[in-house]
Design a protein around this nucleic acid. Structure first.
Length: 507
RNA sequence: GGUCGCGUGGCCGAGUGGCUAGGCAGAGCUCUGCAAAAGCUUGUACGGCGGUUCGAAUCCGUCCGCGACCUCCA
């Protein structure tokens, strides 16, 4: 197996990926807090890690992919206690049980992941299902002396941990001294000994909707803790890869490390991966409205699919959006715009069309190995090298497009198919399918078949194309063009080629 | 204010000391009954200013602009 290089946020450089246990890779990705609909930025992040998951599997690894659902403990605002829980806030607003809120948005999240053709993780644990594990972890942290109780709430003693372990701040590049000087955190009335300390168990108030019994009284676990507890439970106290959005690096992931380390004494994660943000109007896409304009710049996926957003001139399908995301590296910000999506749409269609052409290419002769053979094979090799280089999807995609050119040339007769060997053609076919479907996770939306209507449409189109063909043989251009133009109005494009006509539904 | 990152041709977006990224758009040509599709050709791009180097968009310094985190967000 060729080595895979992953950019590790912890060391800030690319490192060769060496699994702790080659038999089973542990991958943990921070999932959503299910208090509202996921927006497109969330989808980008999950899609990025879907590619990671897919590529690891392509490499032959068995992967345990854990992605959590946070359905408790995530507070609104920056207070550690006394603040409202996100779940509870939505529950009150919608007059629902917190678990109804969780279910509603979990289902919505799953639907969206399916639309983007993201694979399901192998385990999707929820915070409320792991209260016992979280309480146990709090106890471990207390036993190790890194926690303290104040009036029924438990805090993580960041200062003590930082002094003793020298790992705090490593991931986010923060120094505790600087944080000490930071005055902002003190603006809230707090029981904490130090602003950098954070709640791991929050005492329930009278009106707290979600609360559980614990050795310290009724309460709920703090945010950050669910990830520590559940990753430890399913992947062990040390595992391979942890992923999440760049915006989770601090405080979420930094505190996660502190909790794991404070409870188990080991650094939990070997490779930390962070995906960068999707931008809307040049700014991070966020659910929170802009304080100046009062409007959120987040685009909901549904708006994209239906085309009902001010930014968009038309609707874009999930696969076009996925293709659009693949064209950028996961560690770069990506600007969403109508123009960029239109370009992605054409590119996506071109790629899928070329795949169809490729699948239909056949040749019988087996000539000698030519330069063309080598060129194609090395381009295919390079595409995999690009993926091995920190999942460089845009680069790998560009290799595919290099071959799209050749594929179309073979079909159009600009290049002779017999200039490549049977084996090379076969490899090109399988590699294209592997990349497009297995690694990139794209679906073929250009195919009409798959249901009864599709089959009917295929038959109809065959008939119409035949009729037009006859008209053309008779040089009846009026009929021929009428068919072509009418179909065009119906968003069906007829493509005349050497071997007859094909058609495609325009987006 | 602190920490980090970015600024690439009309747009999106890779790359990173010397070799064509790619997609979209534009121009010319080929094919075609005409188109479309497809193919071919075509872009003196790397924020400004210095420096290192035989050579820098790529390294260093500096200035300007933008963003992320530091408070919930993938």
């Amino acid at each position: 197996m060729k080595p895979l290089y992953i950019y590790n946020s912890l060391s800030r450089k690319k490192e060769e990926f060496i699994p702790i246990n080659p038999e089973l890779i542990g991958l943990y990705v921070c999932g959503p807090t299910v208090y509202s609909d996921v927006h497109l930025g969330n989808c980008r992040s999950f899609t990025s890690f879907d590619i990671v998951y897919r590529y690891l599997m392509y490499k032959g690894y068995q992967v345990r992919y854990v992605r959590n659902i946070t359905d408790a403990g995530h507070l609104v605002g920056d207070a550690d206690i006394g603040a409202e829980d996100k779940m509870a806030k939505t529950a009150k607003a919608l007059k629902l049980e917190p678990m109804e809120v969780a279910h509603k948005y979990t289902v919505g999240f799953h639907d969206m992941m399916k639309k983007f053709n993201n694979l399901t993780p192998t385990i999707e644990p929820r915070a409320t299902g792991h209260i016992t594990e979280q309480i146990k972890m709090i106890q471990d942290i207390l036993d190790n002396g890194y926690g303290y109780e104040v009036d029924g709430s438990i805090y993580f003693n960041t200062v003590k941990f930082a002094e003793e372990k020298d790992v705090y701040g490593q991931l986010s590049g923060r120094k505790l001294d600087d944080m000490l000087a930071e005055s902002r955190a003190l603006k809230n009335q707090s029981e904490k000994k130090h602003p950098a300390d954070f709640a791991i168990w929050i005492k329930a108030e009278e009106n707290t909707l979600q609360k559980w019994d614990s050795p310290w009284g009724e309460g709920l676990p703090g945010w950050h803790l669910e990830c520590s507890a559940m990753s430890t439970k399913y992947l062990g106290s040390e595992f391979d890869i942890h992923g999440g959005g760049e915006d989770l690096k601090f405080p979420h992931h930094e505190n996660e490390i502190a909790q794991n380390c404070g409870a188990c004494g080991t650094m939990p994660v070997k490779y930390w991966m962070h995906g960068d943000m999707l931008l809307g109007n040049g700014k991070k896409m966020s659910k929170t409205p802009d304080p100046e304009t009062g409007k959120s710049n987040s685009v909901m996926p549904e708006e994209l699919f239906l085309g009902n957003n001010d930014m968009l001139s038309k609707a874009f399908s999930p696969m076009v959006v996925r293709f659009f995301m693949l064209q950028a590296h996961y560690r770069s910000t990506l600007d969403l715009s109508d123009e960029a999506l239109l370009a992605a749409e054409k590119g996506y269609t071109r790629l899928m069309e070329a795949l169809h052409v490729l699948q239909d290419l056949k040749h019988e002769t087996t000539p000698k190995i030519t330069d063309e053979d080598q060129e194609i094979n090395s381009t295919l090799d390079q595409a995999f090298e690009d993926m091995d280089n920190d999942f460089n999807t845009p680069m790998a995609l560009s290799r595919l497009f290099t071959l799209v050119n050749k594929i179309n040339s073979f079909k159009g007769g600009h290049m002779d198919l017999s200039s490549i060997s049977k084996e090379t053609l076969a490899r090109m076919k399988t590699t294209f399918e592997t990349f497009i479907f297995d690694i990139f996770g794209l679906l073929d939306e250009t195919q009409s078949s798959g249901n009864g209507d599709g089959a009917a449409l295929d038959g109809l189109m065959e008939l119409i194309i035949d009729i037009r063909k006859e008209a053309r043989v008779k040089k009846d251009w009026g009929t021929s063009d009428q068919i072509r133009d009418k179909l065009k109005e119906l968003k069906i494009q007829v493509k005349d080629g050497k071997e007859g006509s094909t058609w495609v539904i325009e987006k």
